[in-house]
Nucleic acid binder design. Structure first.
Length: 119
DNA sequence: ACGATGACAGTTT
DNA sequence: CAAACTGCCATCG
């Protein structure tokens, strides 16, 4: 049996899985394609609880915040790991550790995409 | 059931 | 530019 929240998480994973290597998306951007931009925090929560077994299938590291920075919020390991993964695939960080979204932000799923969830 | 928390974001100071 | 404040909503204890 599946709950509404399960559907939300799956939708987040589904959208995140579409982000191509070498580009990034913001939490609000993913939220927008899932259902609506207001769910940005929910996207963070969903990715935070991504099962380790699905890390290959879902590129969680390609999701960063709207200022082009990697959200740290007290954590130490995850942010470092995330930056390393992004660098490895060609995403550049400026002197202050910020990604230029004008250059690296994902263009989106395409014109025929319909959000899997209803607001 | 409910209050606290947080991988957010936009606005204001 | 940074810190504070505000609205938001999935998760957790």
């Amino acid at each position: 049996m599946s709950t509404a929240s399960d559907a939300f998480r799956e939708a987040v994973y589904e959208v995140t899985a579409m982000i191509p290597e070498g580009s990034v998306a913001t939490y609000a951007q993913v939220a927008t394609y899932v259902v609506s931009p207001r769910y940005a925090r929910g996207v963070g929560a969903a990715l935070k609880h991504l099962p380790p077994g699905r890390h290959a299938e879902v590129p969680w590291h390609r999701v960063i915040n709207a200022s082009g920075r990697i959200s740290a919020k007290g954590e130490t390991f995850r942010p470092v790991r995330q930056e390393r993964l992004l660098r490895r695939e060609g995403v550049a960080f400026d002197r202050s550790g910020r990604v230029n979204l004008m250059l690296f932000q994902w263009s989106g799923p395409g014109p025929d995409w319909v959000p899997p969830l209803r607001p």
